[in-house]
Design a protein around this nucleic acid. Structure first.
Lengths: 115, 115
DNA sequence: TTGACGTATTCCGTTATGGGTATACGATTG
DNA sequence: CAATCGTATACCCATAACGGAATACGTCAA
């Protein structure tokens, strides 16, 4: 074995900056591929590939219109990610990092205590 | 060029299921590596590697204690992800997907309209 | 100091990902 | 029917990333 399946879920789909950009653009409305190509400044095939990944996790839906394919956002699969993160929302509001800082400093002290 | 740097940011760090598990465990409190090894059922080196990735994006902090290394969650870097997702929160609450369904059906009709 | 323990790092092999380029395919236009 | 447009796919390359196994390194105990 080498790597676990990757782009198979929304987490991975969204880990790619370009794909996030695509979603951001589609959030404004339906768009044909060439629009995205222009806006992203990428080559058309790469955009199509990213769209494929997004389609596979159902983050985008397509609609044929003549020779164009209009892509549209489907945010639904993002919800599990959001839900997962919600657990941590509290954590970063509390000042645990203050304790971290203290611990880190103690650790530092410890490290160069005897050089 | 081949791939853009990957594990360099929190998005990618969190895209790995095992790493999410690790964070989930650390959310309960500080833990030494071997604890995680036992709980995850992974080999120790793999756990250390995942921890390294998490450390590099500052999602975990370490503290030496004797020959143990106690890892602790730092949720802070998750906030940008959460923020990014918040934009879409509204989208999946609205019933845009209803329109999607309709459009999809129209498209379907269209596809096998003339067989 | 030697040995055991806890953890990090290194090396290896495999996979799959992302970019680039060429090309295939369907739809429209003339 | 031919040419063109819009998009998807195939192919190639380089590299990163994961798992596995061995090993290095620091710390503690005897």
């Amino acid at each position: 074995m080498a790597r676990a399946a990757t782009t198979a879920d929304a987490f991975n789909a969204v880990a790619e900056p370009r794909r996030r950009q695509i979603l951001d653009l589609l959030a404004q409305g339906e768009r044909p591929v060439n629009d995205l190509v222009a806006l992203l400044g990428l080559a058309q095939p790469q955009v199509s590939k990213h769209l494929r990944v997004l389609r596979e996790v159902d983050l985008v839906r397509v609609r044929d219109e003549g020779r164009q394919r209009l892509y549209r956002l489907n945010a639904e699969p993002l919800r599990p990610i959001h839900d997962w993160l919600r657990k941590y929302e509290q954590v970063w509001n509390e000042r645990f990092d203050l304790m971290d800082t203290i611990l880190a400093e103690l650790n530092e002290e410890d490290s160069h205590g005897d050089d």
